[in-house]
Structure formats: structure tokens, C-alpha cells
Design a protein around this nucleic acid. Structure first.
Lengths: 216, 216
DNA sequence: ATAGCATGATACCCGGGCGTAGGTTATGGA
DNA sequence: TCCATAACCTACGCCCGGGTATCATGCTAT
């Protein structure tokens, strides 16, 4: 009997990692299965043994990403703290995820507005639906937190559904400009995430003539 | 003698428009020249008469977009007003551009992190360089405005180079979720842009140093 | 050790898409 | 009227890449 537990050197997981890297560099349409195999240091055979098609491989990378996201987000959302704490926590978590798993993050970004109407089997549609649901769930959690925050006077009144867009957009945009540096450590990444999240929460305009306000 | 002035039904411009639409839907790699020709209601022949290659067509769409952007941005930057006014003006301008010329905006977004190292002629590299320079110029203008704003105490102290990223990111992200609605008018678009830009300037945290009050 | 399955490599088919060669119509000047 | 050039269309060459069919090599249990 197989160990079958997903050790990190699981063949399938290795492929997902390689695929994420390849898709990150050239995008879905621009990446060939042979490129993925090259990154993997293997051949097409291995990939097509584990995955039905290129599209299915891409979708699995995407789903993997979204699942990780939603789990992290839900953990924070269910934790203790004010809505403001939670909001900050969720954004921080996402920012860290993007930096630490950049290839996956980028696949998720490309996957969002990809048109795969053609060349998607009904079965893949199901996966696509799953992914979209995960995303919606995450967004809804954020919206709920913001609504709570407004109710408690912690956040300024606004349309949460709308405000969530630039928030997540700013984080997702990290996949465009952020590149890991050799000297990067968890601490430097956290500092960067803090700066960004601070901005997303506080904006940039000086608070009246008063001195800079600090948020808890 | 030809009229040769670029009337809006110029063949070349028509192609650029069609290409922007096609690229927006399927991305660079996912779009065939025949698709562009279909959108155009013409054939490949016309396209290859006006453009050297698919890559060159894409780059021209991208350059067109960036040129329009930079002109709009520079107009605002050179205009009157405080740095805060200018910052708001630039962001508003960009937001409006994204909505009003969505296909072009999307091409620009894809073009940013596209790797075209392969299949780019030295000549195309020059164009690519031009485009990158335009983008840098725009970003530098924004940075300068923010620096001025900080100096004058209008904006809170921060690292402008860094803050610019989520700002522009949030705007560029509009290409992912914004879709023009039939009932959209310049006014509704402006209202949307206002909401977003307000958020980007002011953040979301309540300005009142409100004690987190417990829900009654 | 050997049957049988899990895993992966190799060779191949075939459709699609870029770019081109050469034909065809419109335009304008002599 | 006649030719030159612009503007565009048609048909094809050729390669690339997704997917499959087949072959090779383990590993496990009896």
C-alpha cells in the first residue's frame, strides 16, 4: 500500500509547483507542457500521468491557491479582536501569502479574468465554479468584517463591496512588482506588508492639523 | 496626395482598436491574428500590411495607451493646485481612462509584466524601452507630487516610491472587475472614480479617535 | 522471483497559428 | 489611357504544442 499521504516531494505537488513557476513566467497560453516539464526536470509523460490536460493542471494550481487563501482568511476572521484587527489581519495574511508563494499568487491573478469558455470540459467547469465560490467566500468575509467595523464606528461609512476591490487589487498588484530579493527574510517581508496594509487602512492624506494618528 | 492625417477611421487606428479588444479578451498569447481580423471584419492581410508582426501590433497598442496616459498625467501635474489637488487629479484621470478605454487599459496591464525576451527583435526592444520609460516617467511624476505633499504637510510621511505601487495597483485592478454597463454615463463613472480615489487618499479607518465602543 | 500495478519516458499524430508570397483591386499622376 | 504604387485578400509552408499510444522501469505482495 502506498504511503499516499501528500509528502512535500509528492509527484503531484512537485508538478503543481513547477507549473506555478512556469505559468507565472509566461502565462497560461504562453506556457507549453514541455516548459513545465523542463522546470520540473522531467518529461510530459509524468505530467499527463497525473493531470488530464493543461487546463486542468492550471485549474488545480489555481484551486490550490484559493484554498490556501480561504483557510488563512477564515482563521483570522474567526479569531479574536475588533473588526479593525481582523481587517488588518486578513490583509496582512494575504500580503504575506502573495510574497511567500508568488508563483501561485500570480496564477490566481491570471486565473481571475481568464476566459476558458472554450476548451473547458463540463468537469472543469465544476472546478472553475469551486474556485469562483472560494473567491466569493473570501470577499464576502472581508465585506462582513468591514460592515461590522462601520457599525462599531471603527471604519468610516462606505460601500464595503466596492471598497474591497481596490484593497484586494492593491495586494494582488504585488504580483506585478514584487520580486523576492536574496536578502529578504520573513521580517523584511512583514515590514513591507505592514507598510502596504497601513496605507490601505489609513490612506495617505494627513489627518487634519493634528499630529499623525496611530491606529491600534 | 493622400489626406494622410489620422482620421479616426484610419486603417491603422481601426486595427489598433480591434487588436485592443481581442487582446483584452484572450491575452496576447491567446489571441490569433485571425481573431483580430475577425473583430476588424477583415483579413490577416490588412493587418500584416500595416504591422510587421503580432508582437509589434501588441507593442503599438501598449505604447498608444501609455502615451495617452502620460499626456493626461502631465497636463494635470503642470496645472494649478496643491500637491493634494494634483494627486487627486492624476488618480481621477487614470481611473477615468481605465473605464473609458478599457481594452487599451487591459493591454497595458498585461504588457507590464509580459516576458517577450524571446521573439522580440532588437527593433521591438527599442519600442519596449520607450514604453517602460513612459511608465517610469508617469510614476516619477506621481512620486514627485507626493514628496511635495509631504513637505507641505498635506500628506503623511511615507516612502512615496512604495506607496505609489498600491495606488496604481488599485486603479489597474479595475481592469479586472470593472465592466461598462449600458446605463453607465460619464457621471456614473466619475462617481465611481471619486469613491475609489477618496479611498486611496483617505483610507478606511475612521478619522474620529473613537474608542472602540461595545455594541449596545 | 515473478505477477501486477504504479510511475514515468519516447515517439508520434494532427490541428492551429504566424508569417509570407503572390495575386487583385483601388487611387492617382502623366 | 496607361502605369505605378498603395491597400488589401488568398493560399500555403512550416513549426510548435497539446494530447495519445506505446514502451521501459521500478516497487510490492505473495
Amino acid at each position: 500500500m502506498k504511503a499516499s499521504g501528500r509528502s512535500k516531494s509528492d509527484g503531484r505537488t512537485e508538478i503543481l509547483d513547477a507549473a506555478a513557476v512556469a505559468f507565472m513566467e509566461y502565462g497560461f497560453a504562453g506556457t507549453s507542457i514541455d516548459m513545465v516539464a523542463d522546470v520540473l526536470g522531467s518529461t510530459k509523460g509524468k505530467i499527463y500521468y497525473h493531470f488530464k490536460s493543461k487546463t486542468s493542471l492550471f485549474l488545480d494550481v489555481h484551486r490550490e491557491t484559493m484554498t490556501t487563501y480561504i483557510e488563512a482568511v477564515e482563521a483570522v476572521a474567526k479569531g479574536p479582536g475588533t473588526p479593525l484587527d481582523k481587517l488588518r489581519g486578513v490583509l496582512m495574511t494575504l500580503a504575506m501569502q502573495v510574497m511567500e508563494r508568488l508563483p501561485y499568487a500570480k496564477v490566481a491573478v491570471e486565473g481571475v479574468d481568464m476566459h476558458m469558455s472554450r476548451s473547458t470540459t463540463p468537469e472543469q467547469r465544476v472546478v472553475l465554479r469551486e474556485i469562483i465560490d472560494l473567491r466569493d467566500r473570501g470577499e464576502t468575509i472581508l465585506v462582513k468584517i468591514i460592515e461590522d467595523g462601520i457599525e462599531q464606528g471603527l471604519l468610516r461609512p462606505c460601500n464595503p463591496r466596492l471598497i474591497v476591490k481596490p484593497m484586494l487589487g492593491a495586494l494582488n498588484w504585488m504580483t506585478v512588482w514584487y520580486r523576492p530579493r536574496p536578502q529578504d527574510t520573513p521580517e523584511t517581508r512583514k515590514a513591507l506588508a505592514d507598510t502596504l496594509v497601513d496605507y490601505l487602512l489609513n490612506g495617505i492624506v494627513s489627518p487634519a492639523p493634528a499630529e499623525p494618528r496611530v491606529i491600534a
